[in-house]
Design a protein around this nucleic acid. Structure first.
Lengths: 113, 113
DNA sequence: GCTGGATATTATGTTATACATACTATGTAT
DNA sequence: ATACATAGTATGTATAACATAATATCCAGC
């Protein structure tokens, strides 16, 4: 889905960390996993996803490692670090608080389907 | 609450529009209303709120009008426009979809308290 | 009357980041 | 060969949340 530009801001890293906490993935695969796991609701373009991964790596929340598949194709596999796990927990708690604040303002409109 | 910087992005305008849909308010009052209505969870600094109001006014989603209270103090009262109401409805729908996507990814963690 | 604190708005600058776009390159199927 | 999906890099833009500082008004207590 195409969200009103900025709506996604800030939640992208949490989503990426959450999915990586299930095991290493490379960028392209990650992009598809996000789409699949969110029921096609969330989509991150490569122009968003790759720079985000560089950024998370610079902060040592994920670690990237080049690997060649048996097909010979090179992929950069990202795995979450211990620091990343901590950050994920913190951000999840914040998201939870944020949505509860939203639900107060909007009268509990954002209940999961 | 101080959220991890960017987490709030994109939701601030929706919150402002929602509260203004209950009647006109001036900036300072609005800031406090947001805090109160969200149970002290959401806070917008003046450096965020006022520029946001200018922006919403430029987009004709709200209309500002100078008024002097009986105390003589000048305040700029903002009211939501018809266009603003439409935008509010659209953005609320998007927020709802976004949170349902998040709940899919995180296994329904964001249920209102 | 003066001083401190809450109220109220404006102005300026910084930073983070979502996104578009374009480019390079490889693997697979036709 | 060639088209398409895959895979990653590079560059530039626009937006918006925030900090901070400046300005000004009202009110209470001394």
């Amino acid at each position: 889905m195409k969200f009103e530009s900025q709506l996604l801001k800030g939640i992208a890293p949490v989503v990426v960390l959450e999915i990586l906490s299930g095991g290493p993935m490379y960028g392209y695969e990650l992009g598809q996993a996000i789409e699949r796991r969110s029921g096609q609701i969330l989509t991150l373009g490569k122009g968003t996803l790759y720079p985000l991964l560089y950024n998370l790596e610079a902060k040592k929340l994920v670690r990237g490692k080049w690997q060649s598949s048996q097909s010979g194709r090179k992929r950069r596999y990202y795995s979450i670090t211990a620091k990343g796990e901590g950050e994920l927990a913190r951000q999840k708690a914040q998201l939870k608080e944020l949505t509860s604040g939203l639900n107060l303002v909007f009268g509990g409109a954002f209940v999961p389907a």
